[in-house]
Simulated scan of single mutants.
Amino acid sequence: MLDQNTVEIELRLREFGQFLRSRREKLAPKDVGLPAGFRRRTPGLRREEVALLAGIGGTWYTWLEQGRDVRPSVEVLDAIAVALKLNPAEKRHLFTLAAIPVQEQRSEGAEQVPDSITRMLNGMENQPAYVLGRRWDILAWNSAAAEVFGDFSQLEGDQRNLIYMMFASQSHQKLFVDWDQLAPVSLAMFRADCAFYAGNKDFERLIGLLKAESEVFTSWWTQHDVTHQPSTIKRIQHPELGLLVFEYMSLSVDGCPGMRLIVCTPREKSTGL
C-alpha cells in the first residue's frame, strides 16, 4: 500500500501532465508562428512542436505530459512556459505543480481564526465579511454576511465551502446576477490554490463531491484553467433586500498561510443594507 506522501506526489505529477496537455491543446500552430501543415487529428499543437519551441527532446517532453517523475529544471520550465505562451498565473501554477519552491507557504493542520480578525468582523456592521481558509472553507463571518448570503451556521462540513456553494447550492447560485461570469473565474482561482495541496485528502474529497453533484463543475474542472485575478464587483439579487452591488476585497491574514479576509463594501447602486 502506497504511503500518503507517495500518493500526493503521483497525483501532483498527473495534474502537472494534464495541465501541460490542456495548455498545448489550446494553441494553434499560427499562435506560435508555425505552419498549419496537413490535417490534424487532435486539437492544438503536437507534443513535438512544443518540444521544438522549448528546445528540449520530444521524448522527454512526452514523459512530462505522462506525469513521469523526471524533475524538470527551472530553465526547462521557463522554456516550456514561453513555448506555451503561459500567462503569469499559469506559469506560477506550472512551477507549483513541478514542486519548484515558491514564496507562498503550504499550511497544515486545523485552521484557527485570530481573535483580532474576529473582532474586526464583528465591527463591520454594514459590510458583509467572512474568512476563507486554505480550502475556501468559510471559517468565520459577521451578521451582515449572514443577512446577505444566508446563515452559514446551518451548513456543516464540506457544504460550508465557498466553491461547494457556488456550484452545488442552487439557492446560493441564484443570488449572483453574473453567476455565469463569476463562477468560472472563482473556479480558476480555486484551481490555482489547489496546486499547493495536490493529493491532499480533504481537497480530493471536496473535488470528488463536486464532481458527483455538479455537471458544470465537472466540465470546467477538466479544462485546467487557472487565474489569480479576482472579480472585484459582484451583484446580488436578494429576495428581500433587492439588488445589492458590492466591491470585493481579499486580504491575506498575517501568520495564517492560505487564510483570507473577504470584505464586501456596498456600492451606491445597492438598494438594500
Rank of each mutant, 00 (worst) to 15 (best):
H224L: 00
W136H: 00
A183D: 10
H172G: 03
F217A: 10
P239M: 12
V216E: 15
H238C: 07
T232F: 08
T232G: 03
L121N: 02
K234Y: 13
E240R: 13
T232P: 12
L162N: 02
M120V: 15
G133P: 13
R191W: 06
M165S: 04
N161M: 11
P230D: 00
F203R: 13
L132E: 13
R160E: 05
A188V: 05
L187T: 01
S252M: 04
S169P: 12
G242C: 14
L244N: 05
E213K: 15
D151P: 11
I233G: 08
I233R: 15
L139D: 00
M259H: 00
L251R: 02
V216R: 07
H224S: 00
L162R: 01
V245W: 02
L121K: 08
V177I: 05
P257T: 07
K234S: 05
M259C: 02
A212T: 10
G208V: 14
L155K: 07
R191S: 15
P128F: 03
Q170W: 07
E247W: 02
A129T: 09
A129L: 13
W220F: 02
L182M: 11
L251N: 14
K234N: 04
D158S: 12
S186A: 15
S252F: 02
G255R: 01
F246S: 07
S153L: 06
W221L: 09
M259L: 14
M165K: 10
K211I: 11
L251P: 03
E204R: 03
A183S: 11
M120E: 08
Q154A: 14
A212V: 07
A140E: 08
R135D: 01
L121H: 00
D254R: 08
W179R: 03
P184I: 06
P230R: 00
N122E: 11
M249V: 03
R160C: 14
N122P: 02
G157A: 11
L175N: 10
A188Y: 09
P184T: 14
M124A: 14
R134E: 03
N200E: 11
E213I: 06
K201N: 05
